[in-house]
Design a protein around this nucleic acid. Structure first.
Lengths: 281, 281
DNA sequence: TATGTATTGGAATTATTATTTCATATTGAC
DNA sequence: GTCAATATGAAATAATAATTCCAATACATA
């Protein structure tokens, strides 16, 4: 028999979702209950679970068998394993990660190091983010006709994600790429009715700074994401955010910057939807 | 009787620690085991736990009774409740944040949501990453003459960061961009001596899949980062990673993918340096 | 509508597991 | 060293829980 039994929760979940349509009524009922209340499956007895889900214990067993398990008990193992793996608290794990990464034990340690750096950065930013700045930045950007997105090198991935997200939200935007010498002209099109998101970290890419200066001289408001108050970007910006990313193996995390970037993007999307409603309503 | 039975894990833990000195030998043994392996207590049977701890089942029951429980079963409830709460905290927090953001509770909630999604994703991946796959992927990539990086749309920011990092590490690489119809030719240059990092998540960009297929038919080994075993990328890949990113407000986090991408990149850098040393030394 | 097939409910059966019991061992006080 | 009190081991027993079975029902097909 090539019947492949799901051994981890995610596979199991996918399998259930996949077959959902073809399941008999009562089996589907217990399937839905299982995905909605995985903890109950992990700890309950066949009888108690069946009762909560409104079916007979035998149905529960048939459900398990239909998925390839030989009974309820082995299905339950998967749900228990899931809980087991989520066990240790976040801080404990982070601490363990740091220790392991420091001890330099193979490639897993490298990975752990990046995870730890990302987590640290996220922690930091959620502590230090200035809410008023966030509101200001979003208001400013929401009013813009076109949002220009300006970033090079290390910050470029963030810019490209912003551009992608703005596009999906149907917000007009222009990514200022460094393909040719066309940037200067592109920047020249911006007017005070537009706005810029500029991202740059030390060592600041000279092109980014130059373009930011030039665009701000045209009276275009800038929202900057950068790493210190000494950053040249901070001087040109109407609103700026200080984001401290932890680094590992010479590369800084992008996770905090990404989170902020997405909050700005989605925030602008929401603000536009709201004010659109208000204007129309 | 004013015998106060600990109802939550922390109280229980404190109680045990408090009485540690005065407990009989075997009871102390099971007490230590319980605090060291709380998960085993939560999921095991009296017999299996007793065996692991090196005592008789009856001792386990006596231990429970000494703490004021009326048997092993009620002691076990406390250990199960602990897991239940731990587990729900993250998912529930994310869920709560989503609800809060939906209800239009300010932009800070959106930001918090993205931070939580990123944290959750990092949490997940550091739990589920397969170390052997990581080693395989790094070995494979370290041997490549040129590393091609293939990703579109949502995954593109990751690809661009990989390309940036590879460049800084002086590792020859080629980002397959979608600027023009040149991709097909670019892909055509790859040989079995090269390698590909391909990244794609559901809904898989057709271009990515097509290019991955064609490049794998040329015998170029592929390392894929994708989101499920059903992904078409998984079929073409020599090594593939399953990364589950949490989403918020319709946008998935990239943090886990980024961490993995950086680990691959830096891992390849280290491996090359090492084997370079060996060759020269 | 008739007929075979798949699904379901509920009780009987089997299994697993917790608990109790009792014989034995250990410990500490005198 | 002896005695009493306490602790422990091992197996018997009780309890709980999973599974199976069969009759009843719903469902689809001709």
């Amino acid at each position: 028999m090539d019947e492949r039994v799901p051994r981890d929760f995610e596979t199991l979940r996918a399998t259930i979702l996949d077959r959902r349509e073809s399941l008999p009524k009562r089996i589907a009922q217990i399937a839905a209950y299982a995905l909605d209340n995985p903890d109950d499956i992990a700890f309950g007895t066949a009888a108690s679970i069946a009762a909560s889900a409104g079916v007979q214990p035998s149905t529960l067993i048939r459900f398990a068998q239909q998925l390839g398990f030989d009974g309820f008990t082995s299905l339950q193992q998967v749900f228990r394993e899931r809980l087991r793996e989520r066990n240790s608290s976040y801080d404990e794990r982070l601490q363990a990660l740091r220790a392991k990464a420091d001890s330099g034990a193979g490639h897993r340690a490298i990975f752990d190091g990046f995870v730890a750096a990302a987590s640290t950065s996220l922690n930091d930013i959620s502590r230090t983010l200035d809410e008023a700045h966030l509101e200001d930045a979003i208001s400013l950007l929401a009013k813009a006709e076109t949002i220009y997105v300006l970033a090079k090198r290390r910050s470029y991935p963030v810019a490209s994600y912003i551009a992608y997200a703005l596009g999906k939200l149907k917000i007009r935007n222009q990514l200022i790429e460094s393909a040719a010498g066309l940037n200067a002209e592109m920047v020249g099109f911006a007017t005070p009715a537009d706005a810029v998101i500029a991202i740059s970290f030390s060592p600041y890419a000279p092109a980014t700074i130059e373009e930011a200066r030039s665009i701000s001289e045209q009276g275009v408001p800038i929202v900057a994401i950068t790493d210190s108050s000494f950053s040249p970007l901070a001087q040109f910006a109407k609103v700026w955010f200080e984001v401290a990313e932890a680094d590992f193996a010479g590369f800084r995390s992008l996770s905090a910057t990404m989170a902020l970037a997405m909050a700005l993007t989605v925030g602008v999307g929401e603000k536009r939807r709201d004010s659109g409603k208000r204007r129309r309503g």
